[in-house]
């Protein structure tokens, strides 16, 4: 009973945080430098790991597809398979997971530390709402940066798949055929669906991380607990939301 109550409390406080943050959206121009900073942290510094990961995801997809499709001599469809699965599913989800691990954890740790060491209380005392200064710029930054990261993940993954498809002995698929497969089977709608998913995931990750960080109560030991909780909730939420968002987007 207490746990259900706890979950509901988390859920409610997250929604309240979201609404309050958007209430302070008009103050964005005054916090321009903070927005840039968060964009830098969320987007620019996350890009290398996203690039590496998506390259190898694309490669391993092409490898697996080539291995499986070799039996039915349908290797021309490697491009279609890699392109579609990256655009619709893997690029947004993997990017979100990386953002959750790299950025979400950092945000929740930072906010939890500020909360534990009463910096947040100091802000409140100075009549600076933490939502305005700490949460809102991050949410806007993630909304700006997620599509960029995801489209990069898409393209790098495709290139990774192409490299593998051309150079592995038992596949040796011409790059042009590979990209023709992508062009024939992947529509811009697939890409847009992926970007929308990434946007939703990124927004949820930052919101949850901020909420968990700001709700930290106790000593420094709780900071680690908050980080763990933020990342775990984010990952679970990404995968659960993934199903429902994909389902909803398919029906549109």
């Amino acid at each position: 009973m207490k746990q259900i109550n706890n979950i509901l409390e988390h859920f409610g406080s997250t929604i309240i945080l979201c609404i309050r943050s958007f209430y302070y959206l008009p103050t964005l121009p005054r916090q321009w430098h903070r927005l840039i900073e968060h964009c830098y942290l969320i987007g620019y510094t996350t890009f290398p790991i996203v690039a590496i990961l998506s390259f190898f995801i694309g490669s391993v997809l092409a490898l697996q597809a080539g291995y499986s499709l070799e039996a039915v001599a349908a290797q021309d469809f490697i491009g279609a398979l890699v392109g579609l699965s990256l655009a619709r599913e893997l690029a947004p989800v993997m990017t979100s997971i990386l953002v959750a691990g790299r950025v979400g954890s950092a945000i929740s740790a930072e906010l939890a530390t500020m909360k534990v060491y009463q910096e947040v209380d100091a802000l409140v005392t100075m009549n600076i709402p933490p939502e305005r200064m700490l949460v809102m710029p991050r949410l806007v930054a993630v909304l700006i940066m997620m599509p960029v990261l995801t489209i990069c993940a898409n393209l790098i993954g495709w290139v990774g798949g192409a490299v593998i498809a051309q150079n592995v002995d038992f596949i040796q698929l011409d790059t042009r055929i590979y990209f023709d497969g992508i062009r024939n089977f992947v529509t811009f709608r697939d890409i847009v669906d992926g970007l929308i998913k990434a946007e939703i995931f990124g927004f949820c990750i930052i919101l949850i991380s901020c909420n968990v960080g700001l709700r930290t109560v106790g000593g420094p030991r709780e900071i680690g607990g908050s980080v763990t909780r933020a990342v775990v909730i984010s990952l679970i939420l990404i995968l659960i939301l993934d199903y429902f968002v994909t389902n909803a987007l398919m029906k549109i």
């Binding site: 964009c39 830098y40 987007g43 940066m145 960029v148 393209l155 970007l195």
Partner: peptide, 15 residues
């Protein structure tokens, strides 16, 4: 950040 954002927009356009 600006460059990165522009890169993202350009890539979406290219795709």
């Amino acid at each position: 950040v600006g460059l990165f954002f522009i890169l993202g927009v350009v890539l979406i356009w290219v795709v």
